[in-house]
Design a protein around this nucleic acid. Structure first.
Lengths: 150, 150
DNA sequence: ATGTAATTGAGAATTAATCTCGATAATAAC
DNA sequence: GTTATTATCGAGATTAATTCTCAATTACAT
């Protein structure tokens, strides 16, 4: 059994929830894919493999995976949530092109220090952060003559 | 005339758009309020003052204010966009309590350097960033016994 | 085996945001 | 000032992501 599944099942047991084939199917699919995903894409992928899992179940399962630290929400400011693996992946942030939507991932270890400073200064228990940097990639900068200050 | 209005009118003229009482009303209201706001709150405030401005007009005006650098979108992960002044305010980020929603603002000047590094490394023209740090404030940590790892 | 209560799928409901369209009004040209 | 052009307006319809409802199912404890 993969350790993602193990983590999830420990979480399930600990919370008095139930192991269901649907939840395992969804989790397995998520960890077979690399990179970001969203609800719609995940649903279509599962459907394409003959799965009968409903969107409602996906919407219900994702918060559990988030809660046990396997995945997290990512905001690409395009009207719906995206998600990505946390488990087994180095912490990273996203540089997004406002023109074409391309995503570059980058690491910024100093944010760990920032979290500790903030925890101390404001007496917070920090659970995480989201850093999105946005701008225009070279290709889009050359394309869009109309825009200002480019 | 306030300089926010001046900036907006320069922008309007430059783009061949039109000065309308609705847009000025909305802009004036935004800059009378301090702190964050959202479309619904802004609409109700205007309505409360007897304004006839429609929500559609607010939705249409905000992108203009964003485009000319007066305000920006802020993501509090609660299902809709929030906005805040940029003009006349130091760049800052948000520390949000997952329990009660309290927002602490903090400055982190090193992100300016990070932007420059990213611009160089990935050949991007950086337009801005969003950093949200989230966790639990002292009060919420004491309240929520049920949660884990608190 | 049985009881219970968590979970499911299907579709309705909700909600933020966008779009449509006829009416209005800001600007430019005369 | 008058007129023409067309951006902008308000109201309501539409879209799309997400959540909710509810009856049927099923995981788990006893």
């Amino acid at each position: 059994m993969t350790s993602e599944l193990q983590i999830f099942q420990d979480y399930i047991r600990q919370r008095g929830l139930r192991r269901t084939p649907e939840r395992e199917e969804i989790l397995r699919e998520i960890f077979e894919v690399h990179g970001h995903f969203d609800v719609d894409g995940l649903y279509l992928q599962l459907k394409g493999k003959g799965s009968k899992v409903s969107k409602a179940s996906i919407y219900r399962a994702l918060p559990l995976f988030i809660d046990c630290g396997l995945i997290r929400e990512v905001d690409f400011s395009d009207g719906h949530w995206h998600y990505e693996h946390i488990y087994g992946h180095a912490d990273h942030n996203h540089l997004r092109c406002l023109g074409c939507g391309e995503i570059q991932e980058f690491e910024e270890p100093t944010l760990q220090l920032l979290e500790e400073q903030l925890a101390h200064k404001y007496h917070y228990q920090i659970k995480g952060h989201q850093l999105q940097v946005y701008g225009y990639c070279t290709a889009c900068r050359l394309k869009d003559w109309g825009r200002q200050g480019v």
